[in-house]
Write a protein that binds this DNA or RNA. Structure first.
Lengths: 106, 106
DNA sequence: TTGACAGGCAGGTAATTACCTGCATATTAT
DNA sequence: ATAATATGCAGGTAATTACCTGCCTGTCAA
């Protein structure tokens, strides 16, 4: 998993909307996705390329159409690496802050 | 929660390293964090400002020092909104793909 | 086989980003 | 008080990003 590509892909509202659109109905064509995006087709293509590079979306050609499918695996890996780790210490944070303000070092 | 700020903040290796450093030892000063970063102090400050704007880090002044603390809440919210949603349909994806390739629409 | 449709390719621009250097301010220790 | 220390502020540059327009290719249906 390339965390950089995944987070950068997610760091744009257009690309998050694309994921939401595919979540509503998986396997949409480029044209269908564009109808919901309010930008030129080529701009949407570039956003999709970034999602594909991050392995968040896979595409399949069918005739002259291109179908798009979500791949949730990188999201799960991001969770395992970046969310769980920090959640574990969630409860200890207020304590850390209080201790530091009181000037006590570890 | 501002998903845009959170994902953009996470979309840079320096900022993710800052979070890892604070995870190892919460409450570090700017100077301590800089020692591990291999860039000018002011560059690090700018990265930290982005983490603060995303509410991933909080700061407290103590004398002439500035202490930095992780806030894991936005990460959890990102998980709730962006990871769980897509995980739910994880198992159905191969089926969607197969069906599309066979040319059957819903 | 020809027209309509779906998508790809190749630039080009304005805004944003990630760095930097130089100087200023505030706090602490001598 | 003064020097050292920790951080803040201002501006400047090169790379990246998010758009666009214009034209080309491949596929399907009449």
């Amino acid at each position: 998993m390339d965390a950089d590509k995944v987070f950068k892909a997610l760091g744009d509202p257009t690309r998050r909307k694309l994921l939401d659109l595919l979540c509503e109905r998986n396997g949409q064509t480029l044209g269908e996705l564009c109808e919901n995006l309010d930008m030129a087709r080529q701009s949407a293509t570039q956003h999709i390329e970034i999602l594909v590079a991050a392995n968040l979306v896979s595409t399949v050609r069918r005739g002259r159409e291109k179908l798009h499918f979500i791949n949730p695996v990188p999201l799960h890996e991001v969770y395992e690496r970046w969310v769980r780790k920090f959640e574990r210490q969630r409860l200890s944070l207020l304590h850390d802050l209080k201790r530091e303000l009181e000037g006590e070092q570890e």
